[in-house]
Amino acid sequence: MSDPAALHDQDFVNRLPHCRALGMVLERMAAGRACISMPWDARLVGDPRSGVIHGGAISALMDTCGGAAVMSLPGLRGSATIDLRIDYMRPATPGQRITARAECYHVTRSVAFIRAVATDGDAEHPVASATGAFAIERAGGGDEKPDAPDTRGGAE
């Protein structure tokens, strides 16, 4: 039997063409938290001599995962990245899958704040960490009057 909620979750990634291009898989998405993984891929290599994946691909994973954590909150219609800061702690090991986990640690009427961590096969030593702010649009927002996040933003 298929779980309709899980189906909706997988759609979150499948609907986004760039996430499909990167082979992202949504592992979990609920109550302000999300987990998304991405396989190592030779096309994403940033340093040909080491085979390490480019930071930009990690950015795409972090942004998507942060957006998924935000969109898992109840009553939201849309969100858009305002800013995203990523710190790279060490190169991701070539050949290993990268997994990002994001949590939304604070929400106001119009902004959601997230932090995220990315790991490879060695989950004890993260590859990268991120913090971000997302503009949010609440469902049926006519009476909510959010601070018009207008046309900002990146991914979601």
Partner: peptide
């Protein structure tokens, strides 16, 4: 393949950062 949100459509925020 650079699109994030297909409804707008808009370039994926991760692509912009990359």
């Amino acid at each position: 393949k650079l699109i994030g949100n297909p409804d707008l459509p808009a370039i994926h925020g991760g692509v912009t950062a990359a």
